[in-house]
Design a protein around this nucleic acid. Structure first.
Lengths: 183, 183
DNA sequence: AAGTTTATTAAATATTTATTTAACGTTTTT
DNA sequence: AAAAACGTTAAATAAATATTTAATAAACTT
């Protein structure tokens, strides 16, 4: 690094830091650890990296990098890259935010739909049984019906959420909201 | 509570518990504490509640209820209700999940767009300056341009995310994905 | 096959976050 | 005006989570 390009070089680093800071700051929203957030922010401006390079860059332990990378792979924000000749594994940041958005939210929403809809269906069966049970007093039956209806109403939401996830996975959503919309 | 309705009554409680469990379990996705998650799950099957009733129901401290309620109000999953005659504040769960979805995600995405887009704009200005700087070597300029372009590309995503939030806030999204879609 | 490099797992530690107890301020009631 | 009820804030404790060091396992090289 020569003396004449030090100032611009510094400016580049500062500019990168601004963006990296913002990314790391908003990534808590994605439920990742600070280490993983910083790692992604770093990788966003790098090509592929090895665990050792990550550790050197962030000044953290290798297992921490290993764990963080795995977490980031789970939500598809980092992908493994193949590098012939090197024994070290290499990874690269997924830079297409549309892809990350899809992977993260669809996974999350699908889990929510599955878990809650499952519980709702099961509970509704119970409420029906209570309503049919001859030992239920009228006010018990009324309560059961009230809860049943409340759950039935909520199913509309979970179906919608599932549809939303599906339309994002399929890309159909972009017919409604184009990627390159200018306004 | 008479002896004859104990079985159905128990069944109702068990059915509620299933749904409450699922709600509490998936609410970690919304970044709330376990106390807040359990509180919302409880309130979902109740009408309005006072802090003391919450504490009694969950067996937790009053400040914990106070904090949890405030957090849930922030993401609009609980709203304050007016009860004339009582000095105690009363709160009720927002049972319209569409509303909660909107409040939570739009707030989150708008924060992300604002923070990251702000940093990106600022960084891009820096990269432009580096490119115009006569003391920058050709490879420095090339690097600056590369980063500039990468950021420019990413702006498409943030604009899209902002649009998505807007269409959810306005309800326009339901033209594309109707609430009551059956399939 | 032995030795070396790399990644992962396990156990221990450090840090952060959630929760509680205690204190405070505000509002209402008498 | 004094006392009581209620909610919130502050400090302390408890619990959970992230991170590290140390140990293990797997893959490659010679």
């Amino acid at each position: 690094m020569s003396e004449s390009n030090e100032r611009p070089q510094l400016k580049i680093e500062e500019a990168k830091d601004k963006v990296m800071g913002a990314i790391a700051e908003t990534m808590d929203l994605y439920g990742v650890t600070p280490a993983a957030a910083n790692l992604y922010a770093t990788m966003y401006f790098e090509g592929q990296m090895t665990l050792d390079e990550m550790r050197a860059e962030l000044g953290m332990s290798k297992p921490s990098m290993s764990t963080s990378v795995r977490k980031l792979q789970e939500i598809e924000m980092v992908k493994k890259t193949f590098t012939r000749g090197s024994r070290k594994h290499t990874y690269a940041a997924e830079k297409d935010f549309f892809h990350s958005f899809m992977a993260f939210y669809c996974q999350m929403w699908e889990r929510e739909v599955k878990t809650n809809l499952g519980a709702i269906e099961s509970a509704q069966e119970d409420f029906v049984e209570v309503m049919k049970d001859s030992s239920s007093t009228p006010d018990i039956v009324a309560k059961a019906k009230e809860y049943y209806d409340q759950l039935e109403e909520s199913k509309t939401y979970y179906h919608w959420l599932g549809e939303l996830a599906e339309s994002i996975r399929s890309g159909e959503i972009y017919n409604f909201l184009p990627k390159d919309q200018k306004d």
